[in-house]
Amino acid sequence: MIIVQLSKETIKRIKERSASVGSSYSKGACLNSEAVRRKNSKPEDPWLRPPFFRDIDRIIHSKAYSRYIDKTQVFYFIDNEHITHRSIHVQLVSKIARTIGRALGYNEDLIEASALGHDIGHTPFGHTGEKYLDVLCRKHGIGGFKHNIQSVRFLDKLEECDLTLQVLDSVLCHNGEVTDCCITPERNFSWEHFDKKLADAEAGSDPSPATFEGCIVRFADTIAYLGRDLQDAIEVGLIDESLDDLPEDLRKLMNNNASYRDINGLVIDSFCRDIIETSIDTDCIAFSDDVYSLVLELKKYNYKKIYENHRLHEQDYKLELMFDTVFDHYLLDLESENSSSLIYSDLIDSEAFQRSYIESLKPPEIIRDYIAGMTNSYFESVFKKIVLPERKFRDFG
């Protein structure tokens, strides 16, 4: 068997380059040496694969990450291959956040891991699916449902990823739906503090990130969806491409004559430059007051024209029925201990997931995790299997 080893000279040069990267960080950047894991295990060759870089690998090799490919962002009943799915969204967040982080001198590995993992807990059918699963979770006495908390469950409990506290904290605190003007990190890297933040988030709070890198990812999440969702809405014909009713300040951002195809790039470039200019050599990550007003204006426009558009939600009653049906079906399977049910083979008896965690859950919590992990197409296939009669081949043999 051939085992490839690096020479001592190569290792020395890699270590020197790694040290030079760390020395170029800004004050307040999260250093690789500050990484904390629950198991306190020392990874091999940290100079070759630093801890946050290793977290990137663990996330992209997780089963939950592979399911991004068929989880839609906003438009879930549209057959159009050019609209954004979660797999694209998290890459956009990563790229935007790394652009800001590189300019400001923060840890890009921590930023990338946080960005790639931040939406892993999203349900099928986006925020609408999250809304219906939230109702069902409350109905069955297990609290509400929030995708950021579910992301932590998937990465820290269901799959044995053993990620760093800093990455899990960024995932928990990524809330891009809340638009901040300025965020100052907490800089507390204890598991006791993180577990309290997680419990507070389950109770309804909106915790702040522990690191500058986490703050950047939170801003990048907002930037990534505002322009891209507008571009997607035009792509599927929900908004006219002339954008005649676009607010005047946003028209100025587009130079009054730019094509709608340019708007996403202009939003990303303008907002990133503003954060970099406003945040450099400060103790926070922030928009300027003028650009923050523009962000709020664009968000208000998107809500009116896209997220609350009745055309987008005209079939939601069917989706609500689907969630109710699937949840109730698997609850009955668990109560009757129907071991032939898919929930056993896919989740409970699967060797891919931590049995000790699953055994600690109540039946509604097991179903919560099962549904939250489904892709759009798998959720639809499960629903059809539940409600449609199974056709036999020729006879009952």
Rank of each mutant, 00 (worst) to 15 (best):
I2Y: 08
E16F: 00
S23A: 12
S26L: 14
K27N: 08
G28L: 13
S33K: 15
E34N: 08
V36L: 01
K42C: 04
R49Q: 06
F52M: 02
I56W: 01
I56F: 07
D57Y: 02
S62M: 06
K63L: 11
A64V: 14
R67I: 00
F75R: 00
I78D: 07
E81S: 14
H89D: 05
L92W: 13
L110P: 15
A113M: 08
T128V: 07
V135C: 10
H140N: 12
R153A: 09
F154C: 08
C161E: 10
L165H: 01
L168W: 09
L172G: 10
G176R: 04
E177G: 03
T179V: 11
S190R: 13
A201L: 02
A203Q: 11
P207H: 09
E213M: 10
V217I: 08
V217M: 05
I223S: 06
A224V: 01
Y225D: 12
R228N: 01
A233W: 00
D244L: 09
P247S: 05
D249N: 13
K252V: 10
A258M: 12
S259G: 06
Y260T: 01
Y260D: 00
Y260N: 01
I268H: 07
E277T: 00
S279M: 04
T282K: 14
S288N: 07
S293P: 03
L298G: 07
Y303W: 11
Y303K: 13
N309K: 09
L312A: 02
E314M: 11
M322T: 14
M322C: 14
T325I: 09
D333I: 09
L342D: 04
L342W: 00
I358V: 11
P363G: 05
S377F: 07
E380D: 10
P389Y: 08
F396Y: 06
F396K: 03
